[in-house]
Amino acid sequence: MICNREKTEWVNYMWHNANDDSAKRILLIGDSITNGIYNDVSDLLQNYVATDLLASSRVVTDPVFDTDLEAALVDYTHEIIYFNNGLHGIDVPINLFEEAFFDKVELLMKYSKKVVLATCTPITEKNKPQILSPKNDVVLKRNEVIRKAADKFSLSLNDWYDFILSCPFYRANDGYHYTEEGKRVQAKLVCNILTKLI
């Protein structure tokens, strides 16, 4: 598979209440968008489940992403796995992205009976949150892949692209990320879906 690695690659793991083997658990897998909402999601769901995290810059075609997944999945059983991947490795051809994405979804389904897929958030021009970047064309193509996977495997889908696109006031100026208020709104959207499945 193609790596298309960036200058700096990163990974962040978190296991909440890791010393409690009896806790019901969910796992969030994603990039910096998922990383940004993790604390709010964990706080909102703390009375229901322990929330774990794998956030990284790895695109699904990177072989090292398989290693990251294994580390996140091996120690605990997760009631729900929430999966968001698509803003990195922007130059990976869509056919290779689709093949790898479907493979990862099938893997996650072996570890949890409930898998939720999430479409990617928009990419906008730097300092112009109302204007889409040319790179957003890749987001649109990848979101079609994600919707296709949700349909094929009959999985829940957080198709938040249009809603987030309509809220440029929640966007940070870098074209990718969100304000603290924007992160809280996104966390609530995710929790509305997850609480129905717990």
Rank of each mutant, 00 (worst) to 15 (best):
K7P: 04
G182R: 01
D137R: 14
L53F: 14
L87N: 01
N143S: 05
E79I: 11
W15S: 02
D62G: 00
E99S: 08
V60G: 05
F102I: 13
N136P: 13
N173V: 09
E9L: 05
P122Q: 10
K114Q: 13
C191G: 00
V60C: 08
Y76T: 09
Q186W: 07
A118T: 14
D40K: 04
E144L: 13
D159P: 10
L27S: 04
I198Q: 14
Y178A: 06
D75C: 12
N19A: 15
E98G: 00
L73D: 05
E144K: 15
V41K: 07
T124D: 11
A72C: 13
C120A: 14
N85A: 09
I26V: 15
N47D: 15
D91W: 09
D159H: 11
P134R: 14
V60Y: 02
I37V: 11
I198N: 15
V105E: 06
A23K: 15
I198L: 15
N192K: 14
V74Q: 15
A172Q: 00
N39W: 12
L69Q: 01
L53H: 10
Y38M: 03
R171Q: 07
T61V: 01
N47P: 15
L140N: 07
G182K: 06
D91I: 07
S166Q: 00
E6H: 12
L165H: 07
S57M: 08
G182A: 04
A23C: 12
V60I: 09
S154C: 11
L117S: 08
I26M: 09
K141A: 10
S22K: 15
K113D: 11
A23G: 13
M109V: 02
T119Y: 11
N173P: 09
C191T: 06
G175M: 02
I81S: 06
D162R: 10
I26K: 05
F169V: 01
Y48S: 13
L69I: 00
Y161Q: 04
C120Y: 03
P122W: 07
S154Q: 14
E125P: 01
Y76R: 13
L107D: 01
I37F: 03
L96Y: 08
P129R: 00
E125L: 15
N127I: 06
C191L: 02
I37A: 03
I2Y: 01
P93H: 02
V64S: 01
I193D: 06
Y82G: 07
R25L: 06
Y170N: 10
Y178T: 07
E106T: 12
